[in-house]
Amino acid sequence: WGKEGHYVVCKITQEYLSEDALFAVKQLLPDSAHGDLAALCSWPDEIRFHYHWSSALHYADTPDFLCNYQYCRDCHDSYGRKHRCLTGAIHNYTMQLKLAYADASSKFNYNLTEALLFLSHFVGDVHQPLHVGFTGDLGGNSITVRWYRRKTNLHHVWDNMIIESALKMFYGSDLSTMIQAIQQNITDIWSNDVSIWEHCAHNYTACPDWYASESVSLACKFAYRNATPGSTLKDEYFLSRLPIVEKRLAQGGVRLT
């Protein structure tokens, strides 16, 4: 996601943190965040060219035109190095934080502030369908389209444009209004789904492979569909995809919590 998308996911997360988790998160945040996790959820995007190794961790490469996700097949970087992908990163940072908090005497000296910020960012990204898009079109980055009158690419439409158009059209250009609307849906129309979203098979702490499977399926059904190179995306595409984006932001927030 872009800045707004990560802010929404992390703002939703903060609403539902347990007392213990909120205490631990505030301890890990730098003073500059003033206790607000959402203020730093885009930090991994800002340093991805400084921490060059982190760039491959923002996405997973599904083989072209396949609409399912398999960790062993898809989680590797462009040099074929296994585990260096979005879901491998979520496993990794979940493990780092868990080890540190499960065993206070753990000998590992991970940077837990970075682990928290990477985990928060990547749990958001794995819910953006085109972050688990096709290798051949770089998750939609090389599919040039028009968004109304503006020339852009399909990945940018899903990272930013759908949210920006929603803010203008429905939320008075106010991100907190959009966040409140999504939170209202979490307590109303999605209230029966939340416990399913939160759950992981085998009682695992995180299950990013499942989140990625949902995303690549949505990429095939909604992101790529009716968005061929050179097409112009307008109200029909926007109004039918906005509910998908809002639900993915909600799921990302609830699951990160």
Partner: peptide
């Protein structure tokens, strides 16, 4: 759910 589970000790971690 992930952060709440991490900062309370009870569950396993998804194996890669």
């Amino acid at each position: 759910a992930i952060l709440n589970r991490i900062f309370t000790s009870k569950t396993g971690i998804a194996q890669a």
